[in-house]
Simulated assay, not measured.
Amino acid sequence: MSGRSRLRRTGADAVYFILKLTLTISATLFSMLGLLIICIGIYAEVERQQNKTLEGFFVAPAVILILLGVSIFVVSFVGMVGALRDNRLLLKMFKWTLVVILLLELVFIIVSFLCRNKVLLMFKANVREGIRHYYDDLDFKNILDRIQVKFSCCGGEEYKDWSVNHYHACDAPGPMACGVPYTCCVKEKEGDVINTQCGYQKLHQERVEVGTTIHARGCVDAITLWFEDNIGPTVGILIAILLPQDGTPNVPGAGNGEFQEEI
């Protein structure tokens, strides 16, 4: 074997080792992440079943977490085993699965932008339906409360969406009538204690009147603006995560001593 051939083989082995190590570590980390998501999803589902009032099985965030965790774990585990055992079939399965996932996400983003108005209408309709059952579905209640606090918003399209809820409608009996939940309230400073009665009798007031006490803008618009502002970094992070895993070790015969000598 000539010196050039030996040097080329050493360089190829080094590249192969780096790719294999990178893929093994990243796939292992994602497998552990998948297991963690599965555990969280199972715990959330157990809690949901104990307090379950609605029958929307596939709408439950806990079920979505479990399905997401299983998908991440299976795909990552295939990549990890394929890298450790130099199994080309598993590596190809892993590679093309990631390619398909990336393409589906890109298609989803493109279709969402092309059909933006229809997507927004469907989103607003679903949020209004969720508001209608706000006190019956604890999963949706916790999610919407967190969104209203984080994005400083109230309701779906606007704060008056809360009129569809049986407890907040203006003709409903009780102290919550014609009001909104306290998570819609405006906090002057971070850490201030919120007055839980600040949303009292706000639905019959106009936007200019409620602006200092509750958030008037809807959460659909707030989330849409946030998504548009962060779409670039989100796609960049997604590609940065997937591309290193796509670099599956494919050096011919690497690690098996099958390089041919150059004469």
Rank of each mutant, 00 (worst) to 15 (best):
K150V: 00
N117R: 12
L36V: 12
R48F: 12
N126W: 09
E45F: 11
V107D: 02
A216P: 09
I263T: 14
K95M: 05
V235S: 01
I42F: 07
T28F: 02
G41Q: 10
G79W: 01
Q148K: 04
R9F: 02
I237W: 10
F151Y: 12
G257R: 15
A222N: 11
T234F: 14
P249E: 15
D161Y: 01
L19G: 06
T22F: 10
R6T: 12
R48P: 02
H133V: 12
L23A: 04
I110W: 08
Y43G: 10
A240N: 11
R207P: 01
T183Q: 09
T248D: 11
T248I: 15
G130F: 06
I131Y: 07
L7N: 06
G156H: 00
I147Y: 07
L104D: 00
V220C: 15
R132N: 10
P249Q: 13
G3M: 08
I72F: 04
V78I: 11
G211K: 08
G174D: 03
I101T: 05
H133W: 06
V15M: 03
F77N: 06
I143C: 06
R132D: 09
I131H: 09
L36N: 02
L242N: 08
V235I: 12
L225S: 14
G232C: 00
G179A: 15
D136V: 07
L144N: 09
L144I: 10
V251T: 15
I109V: 05
T97W: 01
N230I: 01
V127A: 08
V78Y: 02
N142M: 05
L33S: 01
V164N: 02
A222S: 07
D137M: 05
H166R: 05
K52T: 14
A172R: 06
V78K: 04
Y134A: 12
N87M: 00
Q201G: 02
L54Q: 14
L84I: 11
I147C: 03
L243H: 09
H204I: 04
F123Y: 13
T213W: 07
R116P: 04
G41T: 05
L114T: 13
S31H: 00
D136E: 12
E206F: 06
C170Y: 04
D136A: 13
D229T: 06
I101Q: 05
N195C: 03
R48W: 12
M122T: 13
I109C: 03
L203D: 04
A222G: 08
P233F: 04
P173I: 08
I110P: 04
I241E: 11
F227R: 01
D221R: 14
V107P: 01
W226S: 05
R116V: 04
T196D: 00
Q148F: 01
I223R: 10
L54N: 15
L114R: 05
K189M: 12
P175D: 14
R132S: 11
V164I: 13
Y135V: 10
D221L: 14
